[in-house]
């Protein structure tokens, strides 16, 4: 059996990296005797995986973790774990996955972001439209061999719009195509001839999506 948790990472928990996050969840599971399954072998490890791990510095309100369990869990365990986990890290909901469902990590295709702008100079819908109208949007990126390569991120920007002081983004996420919000901000700044300071942009990831019949569907549903 696999259970998919939706959780959020807010406040100062954004400074906690992926591996530390996993260690915290493991402690919470142990705390409530959660019926998590372990891998077989000499060094058994708990069977859990987090979809599209978040970079340090970004908060989220819709993250997902799949956990294999041996037996049904008791629902009050979730409250107990939330009580135990540090402020800013909470389980929001869960769903039981069917036998045939693939894990969250492998199906994620997109993420929505809300980026709070500290500097609004030149950030207008017209400028954003012009930015998106470019034939290619090139950025430098390190590939798996740690070599810097130039990539076109345009096809990974599904939507980009200004809403009051926020930039809303829908970006390709996951193993097929992955565009980080910082790539978009950096190239947008370059396009608008703005100095890029990463700390002028407070990034929050709202939710993760998979693809069904050509439509993006929240992992929550």
């Amino acid at each position: 059996m696999t259970i998919r948790f939706k959780f959020r990472k807010t406040g100062c928990m954004k400074y906690i990296g992926h591996l530390d996050l996993i260690r915290l969840f493991q402690k919470a599971f142990r705390k409530v005797d959660f019926p998590i399954a372990y891998s077989s072998g000499y060094n058994p490890h708990p069977l859990l995986s987090i979809a599209a791990p978040l970079s340090v510095g970004i908060t989220s309100s819709g993250d997902y973790m799949d956990v294999k369990i041996n037996e049904n869990m008791n629902e009050c365990m979730i409250d107990k774990m939330n009580e135990f986990l540090p402020e800013g890290l909470d389980f929001l909901s869960y769903t039981m996955l069917g036998e045939s469902q693939k894990n969250a990590m492998s199906i994620v295709r997109a993420a929505t972001y809300q980026v709070r702008l500290k500097v609004l100079d030149k950030m207008t819908q017209e400028n954003i439209t012009a930015y998106l109208a470019q034939e290619v949007i090139l950025t430098q990126k390190k590939n798996k061999k740690k070599i810097t390569v130039e990539v076109d991120i345009k096809k990974g920007i599904y939507d980009l719009a200004l809403e009051k002081d926020d930039l809303k983004m829908v970006l390709a996420t996951g193993s097929v195509l992955n565009v980080k919000p910082s790539f978009v901000i950096k190239t947008l700044c370059a396009f608008l001839k703005l100095n890029y300071n990463p700390f002028d942009y407070v990034i929050h990831r709202e939710d993760l999506f998979y693809l069904r019949d050509g439509r993006l569907i929240s992992l929550d549903t």
């Binding site: 807010t10 406040g11 400074y15 340090v56 700390f199």
Partner: peptide, 24 residues
């Protein structure tokens, strides 16, 4: 939510920012 003493431009440019946030 806890108010941190250091801003992101400091915390995100040092090694292991969690050393300075408490909240354990």
């Amino acid at each position: 939510m806890k108010q941190l003493r250091l801003s992101d431009d400091i915390l995100l440019s040092v090694e292991k920012p969690a050393r300075y946030i408490g909240n354990e």
